[in-house]
């Protein structure tokens, strides 16, 4: 029940994230931004400025290009609203009082004692981003977490008639971030689905994948084989043993005892007297190693019979 709830939660969260990422990638496109303009702003003055609180977004990447005809000098700058408001306080200006994307402006003509700002805007040190040029200037910046205003001013005795503004806004690396969110969301949704179905997303034991092939010859001597030797020798797996504590998914085999091909599996099974089955916590196995290093398996009775004369237990291994 708990797993089911968790699975659903993860699925829903994953889908939401994936949709968000998809929307982001589609909306912003490969360059991570939306572009609009150029848009003309009617003015014969020397200052266009955004009113306080018009720019409310934070962490949005903006590129602003301002253009004026006949190569007139122009300046564009983004600064803290306190600074910008003081700069244009008594200057006749066009003030943008409302803006909505992609480009919808409400402007107001503000009266002022002066026709231009009192100092060359390029000489001021408080701009967060600024640029000046002949016929055009552009800035590219990320909106900070502080109140900011945009100011466009003419330089010298010129004015801003014929002003056109182009705007691009988006997120830096937005397209890749969108794709990343899409992938993460999809992964989350898939993980949630697997969790609901009780499938194991991750294995608990790194050694669980290890498969050991053992061939027991007619003398009862075990020979460990590699997977290649099993394939090359044409052995069939007739018995599987799983180490205690291992979790084996359906169809998985952890320990296998191969027999030479052609030998009847059923017959072998009859010889052993039982079908292959999981053996957990089996009885101890006694092995005698001769001078040639060959292992000979002994039963407990054989061990008891010979123990007094020749054998003694020299090593006990617990394979759990």
């Amino acid at each position: 029940m708990r797993r089911s709830i968790l699975g659903w939660a993860l699925t829903v969260l994953g889908l939401c994230v994936a949709l968000l990422g998809l929307a982001l990638a589609v909306l912003l496109g490969p360059d991570g931004r939306r572009t609009t303009g150029p848009h003309e702003i009617e003015t014969d003055g020397s200052v266009v400025v955004t009113a306080p609180r018009v720019i409310r977004w934070v962490d949005v990447r903006v590129d602003i290009l301002v253009e004026v005809p006949v190569k007139k000098p122009v300046f564009v700058g983004l600064g803290n609203t306190v600074d910008v408001e003081n700069l244009v306080d008594d200057v006749r200006r066009v003030e943008v009082t409302r803006f909505s994307a992609p480009w919808k402006l409400t402007t107001v003509d503000r009266e002022g004692e002066r026709s231009a700002v009192q100092a060359a805007p390029t000489s001021l040190d408080w701009w967060l981003a600024d640029a000046a040029g002949l016929g055009g200037a552009s800035i590219s910046t990320t909106l900070p977490d502080e109140p900011v205003s945009l100011a466009i001013t003419s330089i010298g005795s010129s004015n801003l008639s014929g002003l056109k503004v182009s705007l691009a806004y988006g997120i830096k690396g937005g397209f890749l971030k969108g794709l990343g969110l899409l992938l993460i969301g999809a992964g989350g949704a898939l993980g949630g689905r697997m969790l609901r179905r009780g499938e194991h997303v991750f294995r608990d034991d790194d050694g669980a994948d290890e498969v050991v092939y053992v061939y027991v010859d007619d003398d009862g001597v075990e020979h460990q084989l590699t997977e290649a030797e099993v394939v090359a020798g044409g052995f069939d797996v007739i018995e599987e043993e799983v180490e205690p504590g291992d979790v084996v998914a359906d169809g998985e085999r952890d320990t296998a005892a191969p027999v030479p091909a052609g030998e009847d599996e059923d017959g072998q099974g009859a010889e052993n007297g039982a079908e292959p089955e999981l053996q957990v916590g089996s009885a101890p196995t006694y092995v005698w190693i001769d001078d040639d290093g060959v292992e000979h398996e002994l039963s407990e009775a054989e061990l008891a019979e010979l123990a007094d004369d020749e054998y003694e237990i020299v090593d006990e291994e617990d394979d759990r």
């Binding site: 993860l10 969260l13 994230v17 306080p52 609180r53 409310r56 977004w57 934070v58 962490d59 949005v60 803290n80 609203t81 306190v82 600074d83 990320t142 977490d145 502080e146 109140p147 997120i171 830096k172 971030k177 990343g180 969110l181 993460i184 969301g185 992964g187 989350g188 993980g191």
Partner: peptide, 27 residues
């Protein structure tokens, strides 16, 4: 699961655009 969550949150928290509140205009 925590790593995946952190990844999502990390991506989400990394420069996610949002609107400023109506706090005072100060510097």
């Amino acid at each position: 699961a925590l790593t995946a969550g952190a990844l999502v949150l990390g991506l989400a928290g990394c420069a996610v655009p949002h609107r400023r509140g109506d706090g005072p205009i100060e510097k």
